[in-house]
Simulated scan of single mutants.
Amino acid sequence: MAYWLFKSEPFKWSWEMQKAKAKAGEEWDGIRNYQARNFMRDMKIGDLGFFYHSNEGKEVVGIVEVCKEIHPDSTTDDPRWECVDIKAVKDLPKPVTLADVKATPALAEMALVKSMRLSVQPVRPDEWALVCKMGGL
């Protein structure tokens, strides 16, 4: 299993909106960055990810699961762009802020700190475990 982080601006797609999709999940569409798209190509059903509110809040608020592997992005006819579907799994009891992550030396190399603009990012297993612990899981 691999771990990921999915960033979304809450006014466009919030954690509450993601949870409302329940088990059906939702296409993680609109990604127009090759590196982020390539990360999605590596994802497998059952991989887990953090759901991160960017711009507003700047915090990890929940955990999602990949429920459909890479397929054409329905928001474009351009065949270069693909996406996965994700479904909400659980809330983080205590959201983990970007400030919390940056203040934690063991997370200094996390993509969230190093590649802040990337909307889909890998998360190492040790980073996953630590952020989960910080979030009350």
Rank of each mutant, 00 (worst) to 15 (best):
R80P: 07
K94H: 07
M110Q: 06
V123W: 06
S8L: 00
K68T: 14
G62C: 15
A22F: 14
E69H: 11
D29H: 05
C132T: 12
G49K: 01
M134G: 05
F39H: 12
D100V: 03
A22P: 02
K90V: 03
A22G: 11
N33Q: 10
L98C: 06
A99V: 11
T104K: 09
R37D: 10
E9T: 00
A103Y: 02
M116E: 14
A88F: 14
T76S: 09
F50P: 00
D73S: 02
E56G: 06
P79V: 13
R32E: 15
A36E: 06
I63Y: 14
W4I: 02
R80K: 15
Q121C: 07
W4L: 11
L98S: 04
V89L: 10
K94V: 13
W4A: 11
V96G: 04
E27H: 12
M17H: 08
E27C: 10
S8I: 00
L48I: 13
S54P: 06
K12N: 12
V89T: 03
E27R: 09
K23W: 10
D126S: 13
Q35C: 07
H53G: 03
Q121Y: 02
L137F: 08
G136C: 07
A106W: 02
E56N: 06
K87Q: 14
G46Y: 02
M134A: 07
K12I: 15
V101T: 08
V60W: 05
L112V: 13
K68S: 14
M134E: 03
W13C: 01
K102T: 10
V131N: 03
R41Q: 09
W128E: 06
S119L: 05
K114I: 08
S14L: 03
D100P: 11
E9Q: 00
S119M: 05
A129W: 02
P125L: 01
P95V: 06
C67L: 12
K133D: 14
R117Q: 15
T97R: 02
G25T: 06
Y3V: 06
W128F: 05
K44P: 00
L130F: 04
W28M: 07
A36N: 04
P125W: 06
D73K: 00
A88I: 01
Q35R: 10
M17Q: 12
K87T: 01
W81L: 09
D77C: 06
D73G: 03
N33T: 11
S54D: 13
V60N: 12
L98G: 08
G135E: 01
D91C: 04
G46T: 04
M40W: 03
E56P: 04
E127C: 08
W81D: 12
V123A: 11
G25I: 03
V64R: 14
M1Q: 13
V123T: 12
A2R: 09
A129L: 14
G57V: 07
E82I: 13
D47Q: 06
F39K: 03
R124N: 08
V89P: 02
Y52N: 08
L5N: 10
P72E: 12
L107E: 00
I70P: 02
G25A: 12
M110L: 10
N33K: 09
D47I: 08
W81E: 09
V60K: 09
G62T: 11
D29P: 11
K58N: 15
W128S: 04
F51E: 05
L112I: 15
P95L: 02
V96Q: 03
C132D: 02
